[in-house]
Every structure is written in structure tokens, then in C-alpha cells.
């Protein structure tokens, strides 16, 4: 029997198994267990959640392998980790650790301003961020087996996530209705490979799974992104930056667990407003959040990568 590992079907396939689920950022094994018990379909192992990366400043790099390995030991669900844009050696290290999915992420400080990683060289699958269809297809051409809209990580503000998801979805809808002889010009305008644009037109959707990320803080935010066409949800700071005004550590963890569970339920029942109303009740204080216009241009993470 010939066993094909790291094939396109297998890479894309894991993302398909994550659909309708919530991937949560975690920084400790304890967080990872809370996420798993709340029903997360995977965790993203990090040294700091994006809100803290923002606050800390400096260069944000791949997490210490020690942290990642401890998180991998703590849970049975898939574990993802982030490497810097273009930093293919961080990617090699994370692959060697046995991480299940790599996020070549704008949340970390880019290592290469011209080139993203050539992801076809890896057995481990990659997820990459995008703001529009062209960016999504450029990443897929490099080998990304999953896409997420970027949003603006660490802000708890959904506005950029909505902007990016609407941009992707409305471009897909436009492409579906284009006559074949206009596809090449559309590909040129989008900066996207024409053959992938043909796939989009034929399938009526992106060729890989597309999650929403960057700003989800409440169950209603998650359901909003699902109704806009996301296949699933990444929650970063929205969970473990919630409950900051609780007086005890136990109360804080309880508040975070409540939000985590509610976001999972909202992602499944995103079309059922009655259930959404029920699960949104009495959750406590969500993360404070940042108004995007108060950020300086160089503080916007979504503009990293191209």
C-alpha cells in the first residue's frame, strides 16, 4: 500500500474537519484545557495573546518550543502555532515539533517584507491571513491549505474582520458571474493566479476553508462572521482578555470559560437568534477593545504581508 503523507487532500482535509468550530489562542496548558473543555476544535499555542503583543511592543517571534510542547501534551485536540511571515526556519522548527497546523501570521513581526514562505515544501499544513480575494489566492498559490480573514488582531473590535470577510465574499460572488473571457483581466486586477480564479468560479467559493479572525469578542461577533460566510472562527484575545475586572482569579477564569463556551455554541447555532439570545445572557465583561481609528498606521497588523 502506498501511503501518501502531506498531500494536498490531507492538508486541506484537516481544515475541513475544523469547520463550524472555534480555534482559541492559548498561552498556557491551563488555558488549553479550558479551551478544550469549552469545546474548541483546536488551539493556537502562543507566548502572548495578540492584545499583549500589541501592549508589549518590540519584535514578536515564534513562541518558545517549551510552551508549545507543554500545550501539545495538555490536550488531545489539534495544536496550531504561529511563525513570522517569511520566516521559513521558524516554520521548519514548528514542523519538527509536530505542530498540527502553522499560521504564517501578521500578528508576529514579519521576517521578510517581500516573500512569504513557499508552503508547498512542508508536510505540515499552513493557514494564512487575507484582506481580500487576491491576497487569499496568492497565499493558496504558495501552498496555504486554509485561509483566515485578518481582521485586526488584539483589538476586540469586529469592524476589520467584517470588512475583510465582506471583501472576500463579494469578490467571490462577482467572479462566479464573470464570463470566462473576462477572468484573465480580473486575475490581473486582483493579482491572483488565473487558474485559481477559474477554480473559484467553478466551485462558487474559495478552494480552501476560510475562517474569520481578528476582533471576535462575543458570541454575537462569532455568529455575525458565520452569517457573513465564514467556515469557522478564530478567537484570540477575546477569551483570555475577558473578565479583567473580576476580583479573584477563580472568578476571572469562570468568566473566560463562560465566554469560551458561548462562542462555541454561537458558532454552531449562528442562524438561531433565540439560542444566541439565551447564550449571550449574563456573560460578564467582555474584553475592553480598541477603536481602530485611535491606532497609528504602523500599529495596524493587517497591513503586514501583501
Amino acid at each position: 500500500m502506498e501511503r501518501g503523507t502531506g498531500t494536498w487532500t490531507v492538508k486541506k482535509g484537516l481544515a475541513q474537519m475544523l469547520k463550524g468550530g472555534v480555534i482559541m489562542d492559548v498561552v498556557t496548558p491551563e488555558h488549553a484545557k479550558i479551551a478544550e473543555e469549552a469545546g474548541a476544535c483546536a488551539v493556537m499555542a502562543l507566548e502572548r495573546v495578540p492584545a499583549d503583543i500589541r501592549a508589549a511592543g518590540g519584535v514578536a517571534r515564534m513562541a518558545d518550543p517549551e510552551i508549545i510542547l507543554r500545550i501539545m501534551d495538555a490536550v488531545s485536540i489539534p495544536v496550531m502555532a504561529k511563525c513570522r511571515i517569511g520566516h521559513f526556519v521558524e516554520a521548519q522548527v514548528l514542523e519538527a515539533l509536530g505542530v498540527d497546523y502553522l499560521d504564517e501570521s501578521e500578528v508576529l513581526t514579519p521576517a521578510d517584507e517581500a516573500n512569504h514562505i513557499w508552503k508547498h515544501d512542508f508536510k505540515v499544513p499552513f493557514v494564512c491571513g487575507c484582506r481580500d480575494l487576491g491576497e487569499a489566492l496568492r497565499r493558496i498559490a504558495e501552498g496555504a491549505a486554509m485561509i483566515r480573514t485578518k481582521g485586526e488582531a488584539g483589538t476586540g473590535n469586529i469592524v476589520e474582520a467584517v470588512r475583510h470577510m465582506r471583501a472576500v465574499q463579494s469578490e467571490v460572488r462577482r467572479i462566479i458571474h464573470l464570463p470566462e473571457d473576462e477572468l484573465a483581466a480580473a486575475a490581473k486586477a486582483l493579482g491572483a493566479p488565473p487558474e485559481l480564479l477559474h477554480d473559484v468560479r467553478k466551485e462558487g467559493r474559495l478552494p480552501v476553508v476560510n475562517f474569520a479572525a481578528g476582533g471576535v469578542a462575543t458570541p454575537a461577533d462569532a455568529a455575525l462572521m458565520m452569517q457573513l460566510g465564514a467556515d469557522g472562527i478564530f478567537v484570540g484575545s477575546g477569551i483570555f482578555k475577558a473578565g479583567q475586572n473580576e476580583k479573584t482569579e477563580i472568578k476571572k477564569i469562570e468568566a473566560q470559560t463562560r465566554i469560551a463556551k458561548a462562542v462555541v455554541k454561537a458558532t454552531t447555532h449562528y442562524q438561531d437568534a433565540k439560542i444566541l439570545a439565551e447564550i449571550s445572557r449574563g456573560l460578564g465583561e467582555p474584553m475592553k477593545g480598541i477603536e481602530i481609528s485611535t491606532l497609528k498606521k504602523e500599529e495596524l497588523l493587517a497591513s503586514r504581508g501583501w
Binding site: 503523507t5 502531506g6 498531500t7 490531507v10 482535509g13 484537516l14 505542530v99 498540527d100
Partner: peptide
């Protein structure tokens, strides 16, 4: 094992004339 060990292979399936392409993911 983990995702890097996920694989696909052609396997005979009882009652079917030719093998099925079986995709194993974690």
C-alpha cells in the same frame, strides 16, 4: 500520530469492485 502523519491510500472495501481512496486525518 499528529497531522504530519495523516495520509491517504487506496484500500479494498468489501462489496466494491475496485479500492477506495481512503483519506486518514488525525
Amino acid at each position: 500520530g499528529r497531522q504530519v502523519d495523516s495520509f491517504e491510500a487506496a484500500l479494498p472495501f468489501k462489496g466494491l469492485a475496485t479500492p477506495v481512496q481512503a483519506v486518514f486525518i488525525r
